[in-house]
C-alpha cells in the first residue's frame, strides 16, 4: 500500500506539490491527472526515492520515503518508467534490458529467459542487437516499459506510458497494465490521456500543485455534475419545455432536435415519472438513455476550479 500524507516539495520559492494526500491499496491502478507543472512527476520522483520531500510523509508498505536506510528497499520494490524512455541509444534492446536485470540481481538464466520472452512479445527479438537509437519512439517506449518491469516489481510507476505510442501499441500497453493489475501489482500512472485514465484507472487524483479531488472517474463525475437523461421522441411540441420544467425533480431541461435532455436528481426514481408524464401528454417515447459525463468534463471543471 502507498500512503502519502501532506507530501510537499518545494524547489526554492517554487512549490511543485503541496499537502498531497492519497492512499493506494495494493492491486489497484491509480492515475495522477493534472496539467503540465502540476507536480505529478515530482510526486512520482519522490515516491521513487529520487528526490526528498520537503514536508509531509509517504510510505510504501512499511518503508518511509525520504529515509535513507529505506531508500534502497523501496527502489528494489518499484519499477519506474520516466517521462522520456532514457535508453542507451548505442546499445541493443537486449543489452539495455540485461543491464537493468543485472542491477536488480536477477540470475543469469532467469534474465536471459525473461528478456527473450519480453523481446519476443514485443516483436523485437530478431532486432535485439540493433542500436535502439534507430528504433521508433513507440518501440523505445515499449522497451522502456519492459525495462521498468524486468524485475517484476510490486509497485509500478508509469509516467505517461502511452504518450508516444500509436493507437495499437497504446492499446497493447493498456491491456498489459490491466494484466499486471490482475497479477496483483499496484500501478501509479501519470497521464494526460483522460480516456485512458477513465478506461484503466480504479482511482484518479486530480492534481494541480495539490490534491484537487480523489475518486473513481464515475464518482468524480457524479459528484460534480447533475445526472442527465436524454429522451428521444417522435415529435416534441414547442410548449413541452416550459411544461416539463415545472416538475420539481427536474433542475434543467433543453431540447436538441427530437431529444429532450433533462437534469434529474435520481434517474432510477425519476425516469418512470417523467415517462408517465410524457405519455399523459400524448407523446411517444422512443428511447431513454442516461448521459454520462466524461473524465475530461470532470478534469476541465475541477482543474479550472482548482486553479482559482
Amino acid at each position: 500500500m502507498i500512503v502519502c500524507e501532506g507530501l510537499t516539495k518545494t524547489f526554492g520559492s517554487i512549490t511543485a506539490i503541496q499537502d498531497f494526500n492519497i492512499e493506494i491499496p495494493d492491486g489497484r491502478i491509480f492515475g495522477l491527472l493534472g496539467p503540465n507543472g502540476a507536480g505529478k512527476t515530482t510526486t512520482m520522483r519522490m515516491l521513487s526515492c529520487l528526490i526528498q520531500p520537503t514536508a509531509g510523509s509517504a510510505h510504501i508498505d512499511s518503508y518511509e520515503i525520504g529515509k535513507k536506510e529505506d531508500a534502497q528497499k523501496i527502489r528494489g520494490m518499484i519499477g519506474l518508467l520516466p517521462e522520456v524512455p532514457g535508453l542507451y541509444e548505442t546499445l541493443g534492446a537486449y543489452k539495455n534490458l540485461d543491464y537493468y536485470a543485472q542491477l536488480y540481481g536477477i540470475p543469469k538464466t532467469q534474465r536471459e529467459e525473461s528478456i527473450k520472452t519480453t523481446l519476443t512479445n514485443l516483436g523485437l527479438w530478431d532486432r535485439r542487437n540493433e542500436p535502439v537509437g534507430g528504433f521508433s519512439k513507440g518501440m523505445k517506449q515499449k522497451i522502456a516499459i519492459a525495462r521498468a518491469l524486468i524485475h517484476d516489481p510490486k509497485y509500478i510507476f508509469l509516467d505517461e506510458p502511452t504518450a508516444s505510442l500509436d493507437p495499437a501499441a497504446a492499446k497493447m500497453v493498456r491491456e498489459y497494465i490491466l494484466e499486471l493489475k490482475s497479477q496483483g501489482d499496484t500501478i501509479l500512472i501519470n497521464t494526460h490521456n483522460l480516456s485512458e485514465a477513465e478506461r484503466i484507472c480504479d482511482t484518479v487524483a486530480l492534481v494541480k500543485n495539490r490534491t484537487v479531488k480523489v475518486g473513481s472517474p464515475k464518482e468524480l463525475a457524479r459528484g460534480l455534475f447533475a445526472r442527465t437523461i436524454s429522451i428521444t421522441m417522435q415529435k416534441i411540441p414547442p410548449s413541452l419545455l416550459k411544461d416539463i420544467s415545472s416538475l420539481d425533480f427536474i433542475s434543467q431541461a433543453q431540447v436538441n432536435g427530437n431529444q429532450l435532455v433533462l437534469n434529474v436528481r435520481n434517474p432510477e426514481e425519476d425516469n418512470p415519472q417523467v415517462i408517465s408524464w410524457l405519455m399523459k401528454q400524448g407523446l411517444q417515447v422512443q428511447f431513454v438513455t442516461e448521459e454520462e459525463h466524461s473524465l475530461e468534463d470532470v478534469y476541465l471543471k475541477l482543474i479550472e476550479e482548482g486553479g482559482r
Binding site: 521513487s48 529520487l50 518508467l81 520516466p82 524512455p85 532514457g86 542507451y88 537493468y100
Partner: peptide, 14 residues
C-alpha cells in the same frame, strides 16, 4: 542529458 540517468538512479544501486 540523454535522460538515461533517472531510471538508473531509481534502481537499488548505491
Amino acid at each position: 542529458n540523454n535522460r538515461s540517468l533517472e531510471p538508473l538512479l531509481a534502481t537499488p544501486t548505491t
